[in-house]
Design a protein around this nucleic acid. Structure first.
Length: 563
RNA sequence: GUUACAGUAGCUCAGCUGGAUAGAGCAACGGUCUUCUAAACCGUAGGUCGAGAGUUCGAAUCUCUCCUGUAACACCA
């Protein structure tokens, strides 16, 4: 039921066509305070045309409004405040949620359209750091939100498994490495070679030439180079997958950069056919002046490809394979300019999905204000952070709920939940200066707080003798429950908005609002009391449980029934 | 230097397309477990919304200028 439309109608009927219903609908606002009602109409807009003071307009108008469907309609200053009929509203909301269950809030706006999501994308032979967490977790959540909105997301782990760094890696491995070392501890040792390479090439710049040679060999299909590349890739993936498992994230495809290695000619040919490629200082560029952008470098002066060459191939492939409704790239905000260039180049090429290409940027993670970088050794290992969180969650369980069954698994859900939720709670684009203690908080507005609220709801349902709320009249006469009911009603709207903005934080904030309202209700009203309203109250608790669990699920966070 | 993004309580952040006395969470101080999980709830304290102009009935929110911070800016990704 659209209560905003109902209020709009009430106002329309009291007016003489001074405003269109669309304007009224849009002008209606939600008062901050419950004491000011549920929806409010500010009369300022009418002041000019009616030549009256807003306060006077409000007083006149309220007398013409038919208030029978409301608890009451009141004037306060220039505002007309509508108080909805709480029992009816509550019954509507609860009936809907109980009937729809986890599907509550689902819509079909996406009409099944394919949405490839470029996400996670760790680099082979480098450890996954907190930066990759962001792309992984944001992409994963957006995929779930898209599904809830009727799209068909395709999570693509666009592995960084190609590029000049492999030349460097091979040089490093051959000079200072050994097979045993890599077998024993792949990523640690590969990183060691890589870091050493960067240290030594400052003294011996000819190392860079060697690295370039090796990368050329790799591109040309040289046997040794290819063998090493494959091996490094395989070992790295093993480690990545254990982290993904811990996080509970999966992918539909792992089409890394190498996958597109033999698919780049097509893009280059289109560029040539359309005469978009120009030579500049020995390299090939596309001029983007009409977009207000610098030229995009497509081929290096030695003819080697670049990131963008592969991204063009990727776009062509996705265009052909998926005919995407949306084309998403969850990549750090430092690449915003690059994606503007990519989009412009694709537009010039006439690639269809360029129009629907969205870079979904997220803020940088720093330590003491400094950027992370593998080669300098300034890095936060994702796996270590997750383990620290899981360990702490385990400790908390031993203190608070020592008899809990399945402790390890729940510690994982809570610890990982804290990290994921912490990442998704705030606007994507905020930068984060990493402090471990900040990540390991389980109180206040955190993932565990929301999980705990859900577990409390489930606990009540377990203790209830019968949960036969299906036959309930769903009528609750309790002011303490009102805020919770209102928030439950908002869920479908929040799902749409989060999808439109590609913003998981909207879901996270919503889940906190709901958890907070429910905890308040829980603290002020006794639920398990044998009276007439018990079934309705249980329906409310069940609804809270359903929606909290679903909200967390949209974030990629699990909701244990006990913790 | 150019461009982009940011500047709100001690700290971390919310404040939707401008609207009613600027909100949370941490941290501080105080209160609430013989009764549904205290990872909770309730209260106290804490702010010239970076500065200044402008638009408007009305600005943390829109426009401009300035200050500060971060990032990007051709052979990395």
């Amino acid at each position: 039921m659209d209560y905003r439309a109902q209020v709009t109608n009430s106002i329309m009927n009291a007016l003489n066509d001074e405003l269109s219903s669309a304007v009224i609908y849009e002008k209606l606002e939600r008062p901050k305070d419950l004491s000011m009602g549920d929806l409010a109409f500010p009369t300022f807009v009418l002041a000019k045309s009616m030549h009256m003071a807003p306060n006077k307009i409000a007083e006149d108008l309220v007398n013409k409004i038919d208030a029978t469907n409301y608890e009451k309609v009141e004037v306060k200053g220039a505002y007309i405040n509508f108080f909805l009929n709480k029992p009816n509203f509550g019954r509507d909301v609860l009936t809907t949620i109980i009937a729809e269950g986890a599907a509550y809030g689902q819509n079909d706006n996406g009409k099944g359209g394919n949405v490839p999501i470029d996400m996670s994308s760790p680099n082979i032979a480098k450890p996954m750091s907190m930066g990759h967490l962001r792309s992984t977790v944001i992409g994963n959540s957006i995929a779930k939100i898209l599904t809830k909105n009727g799209y068909n997301p395709i999570k693509d782990n666009h592995l960084g498994d190609w590029g000049t760094q492999f030349g460097k890696l091979i040089v490093g491995y051959k000079k200072w490495g050994s097979e045993e070392e890599v077998r024993e501890n792949p990523i640690d040792n590969l990183v060691k070679y890589y870091v050493r390479f960067h240290k030594e090439d400052q003294e011996n710049p000819e190392l860079d030439d060697e690295a370039r040679d090796w990368f050329r060999k790799l591109e040309d299909g040289d046997e040794e180079a290819t063998y090493l590349w494959k091996w490094f890739r395989e070992e790295s993936l093993k480690e990545f997958n254990s982290v993904y498992k811990k996080l509970g994230v999966g992918f539909d495809t792992y089409n890394g950069e190498a996958f597109y290695n033999d698919k780049m000619d097509k893009g280059i040919n289109i560029l040539k056919e359309k005469d978009l490629l120009h030579e500049s200082q020995g390299a090939s560029v596309v001029d983007l002046e009409k977009y207000g952008l610098n030229p995009a470098l497509i081929l290096k002066s030695d003819g080697a490809t670049l990131y963008i060459t592969r991204d063009i191939a990727t776009a062509l492939y996705r265009d052909k394979t998926y005919n995407p409704a949306l084309n998403l790239y969850v990549v750090g905000s430092e690449q915003t300019y690059y994606f503007e260039q990519l989009k412009a180049v694709l537009k010039e090429m006439g690639v269809k999905s360029a129009e629907n290409l969205h870079h979904i940027p997220f803020g940088l993670i720093t330590v003491n204000g400094k950027k992370l970088s593998t080669r300098s050794g300034r890095i936060i290992l994702l796996d270590e952070v997750l383990d620290a969180a899981i360990e702490l969650a385990g400790k908390q369980i031993n203190e608070k709920n020592p008899d809990l069954a399945n402790k390890d698994e729940i510690a994982r859900q809570v610890g990982v939940g804290a990290i994921i939720f912490g990442d998704l709670k705030n606007e994507r684009t905020n930068n984060i200066d990493f402090v471990l203690e900040d990540q390991l908080r389980f109180e206040g507005e955190t993932g565990p707080y929301v999980q705990y609220s859900h577990a409390r709801a489930e606990s009540i349902l377990r203790k209830a003798n019968n949960t036969n709320y299906n036959n309930s009249d769903m009528l609750i006469n309790d002011a303490n429950a009102w805020e919770t009911l209102r928030i439950l009603h908002d869920f479908p709207k929040v799902i749409q908005s989060a999808c439109k903005d590609f913003e998981p934080s909207e879901i996270a904030k919503y889940s906190i609002r709901l958890a907070k309202a429910f905890n308040k209700y829980y603290a002020h009203s006794k639920i398990l009391v044998e009276d007439q309203e018990l079934p309705a109250r249980l329906a409310l608790v069940k609804s809270v449980s359903i929606v909290l669990k679903e909200a967390l699920s949209l974030l990629g966070v699990e909701a244990p029934d006990e913790m």
